[in-house]
């Protein structure tokens, strides 16, 4: 039996009738049309589907859309305000923290939550905080550099 759900995604209200088995990542990509959350492993491992649910990083492939009913979702499409890049996006660009870019939306959202919880993280805290996001290109060093750069920039 379908359920009507209402979500607040990137500041906009969406209401749809969905099957309970619909995963949040499929809802975002196929119903709402926001394809920034990527489908990688589909087994809750790679973190490419990471979005913020009420400000917390979650793997949207392991959350049912109905679980997010009434809650706030932030996807990568929602973090650049008025056309200017978010501090973490800017830092990923400057520090060459991506090659193919597949993991980047998830990496950036997890990094944003990390910095919200710990504005001046150590390298170890950054690496621990990004454990749930896999990158198969860069070897992580540039990603860690980018998070450090974003932290010091927002501390200016």
């Amino acid at each position: 039996m379908k359920k009507t759900i209402t979500l607040f995604i990137n500041g906009q209200r969406y209401s749809h009738e969905v099957e309970p088995r619909l995963l949040l990542v499929h809802y975002l990509r196929e119903v709402v049309g926001l394809t920034g959350a990527h489908i990688g492993c589909e087994t809750s491992t790679c973190g490419a589907c990471t979005v913020l649910l009420d400000g917390k990083a979650v793997k949207a492939c392991t959350v049912l859309a109905v679980q997010a009913d009434g809650r706030f979702v932030t996807t990568i499409e929602g973090i650049a305000a008025n056309g200017s890049l978010d501090a973490v996006q800017e830092a990923f660009w400057n520090e060459h923290a991506l090659q193919c870019g597949f993991c980047t939306p998830g990496m950036i959202l997890t990094a944003k939550q990390l910095l919200a919880r710990e504005p001046n993280p150590t390298e170890e805290q950054i690496r621990h905080g990004l454990e749930g996001n896999l990158c198969r290109c860069t070897g992580y060093q540039h990603i860690v550099n980018a998070v450090q750069a974003a932290a010091s920039r927002s501390g200016d």
Partner: peptide, 9 residues
């Protein structure tokens, strides 16, 4: 436990 995303849910 797991990783931060899993600990959040």
């Amino acid at each position: 436990i797991g990783d931060v995303q899993i600990r959040n849910m």
